[in-house]
Write a protein that binds this DNA or RNA. Structure first.
Lengths: 152, 152, 152, 152
DNA sequence: TTTT
DNA sequence: TTTT
């Protein structure tokens, strides 16, 4: 019905750009989102949240995001499951981003940003809408390849 | 940069569907969003928030929403200003919706919904992206007509 | 930094209320959130998202929510990990709710709701802030018991 | 019912800290939130959104925010109305913030932040909950003073 | 396995 | 009245 997530955090590593067998760009990275409190022991804590972006947005993220960069992500929670090679069902929870804002740019030019929108490329979800020869089903997973082919 | 609003409330009246001079559908309604507290005097309080939807989503809202219906709205805050007929600058704040969920349907079938997405029509914003002979500028206001022509 | 989630969906089962060894109420349930699209094969799809609530909000949820009820949840994504009894690290992703709205009530009275706020009980997170003899650390996990004691 | 706003933008001026007659801190500022598109004429556009913060959060904002700083704001839309000195009803729409993140700090120390939570001070809304000798009603407006006394 |  |  309604599924919206907004996060601000820092990349734990450089993003990873891969391509599905049918040639669609997918970028994966993890966002470290500091919690607003410290544990009893006073140590800083964070949630490490896996992010996935597709298509044009994937390529822009791969080009501009780097480890440590402060970044805002807007998207939806997706829960996937697959059976691993031990025959056990594994659940994967990740945020499928449709809007990413670069809050720090390379040379600390301050607040550079990109939204996947308004520059010829719409939000990744909107973009798919008008794209009929689409190798992906609407949930962002390839339809012509098995789960084992998924790039992450 | 990032501008996201999510509301759940009830329509104060039936929605109003109009068309711009260039024929684009616009629907306007007001959402009464109860506050989570009651004032000192114990009376129920609400914020009355004006909502605007465009194009396909406007037509769907006009068809299915009615006064009193519980409704979820996702969108962005827009602040417009114009000079009124007394020469004074007037500011209008409204939520431009790109996703509307009908939480009550006609016959209390319970939780019917519509998202402007996944049924052939993308989110209203995404939809505009691939629509080049668009009579509107990207802020959802007509570009070939004056403010006085705006349907609200 | 910032971590906000808003979901609307239906409970897959009745909620489960438990108590930690130190007596703190915890309620767990799963929300089925329909996706805005259908897969290639046309079948309805949903994300099944685990929700956790604490304290007063946990008790209210246990009292009023039931399987199938349309519900709005506001909270944050939490990623926990623990080592299972095979010595393997297991990651658990869930939404820690601080605001829950009941969009359907028992007798279809229509749009009953509860926010954990404004009725003597604040949001669950805010509430903890002023509660110093608190058996929990601020991340909602018991500080005087091991992970094995966690009620889920 | 549910009313949530998340914004990222820049302050158009230094924030203004005032006190109500009963001594409660209130800080007001405007956030310029760039739109994700440019108008037909290619000029950059933004929404200028008035923000209000109360109490401890108001004082922290006044201390640390400055004109031009990139800032994330979480809160709710509030619509107030009052009769101006010409006897006309005026509507004011603003975002009452309960969480503010400083995405740029003074010396570009990179991503300093403050959440009104977890450092001894809870969210401004949560904080009010346990504060009974409160000169304000729960909507953040003074109850013992008239609208004319409002600090903005 | 994690970021500042 | 507006920010980078």
């Amino acid at each position: 019905m309604l599924n919206r997530v907004i996060l601000i955090g820092r990349l734990t590593r450089d993003p990873e750009l891969r391509y599905t067998p049918s040639g669609v760009a997918v970028t994966q990275f993890t966002l470290a989102v500091d919690r607003n409190f410290t544990s009893q022991q006073g140590q800083r804590e964070a949630d490490f949240i896996p992010i996935v972006t597709w298509r044009q947005l994937a390529e822009t993220c791969a080009n501009y995001l780097r480890k440590g960069r402060l970044t805002a992500v807007e998207g939806r929670i997706q829960v996937r499951s697959y059976d691993n090679n031990e025959g056990r069902r594994v659940y994967v929870t990740e945020v499928v981003a449709d809007n990413v804002r670069f809050l720090e740019s390379n040379r600390s030019e301050g607040g550079g940003s990109y939204g996947g929108q308004g520059d010829g490329y719409s939000r990744s979800e909107g973009q798919r809408a008008g794209n009929n020869d689409d190798p992906f089903s609407d949930d962002g997973r390839p339809i012509d390849i098995s789960d084992d082919d998924l790039p992450f």
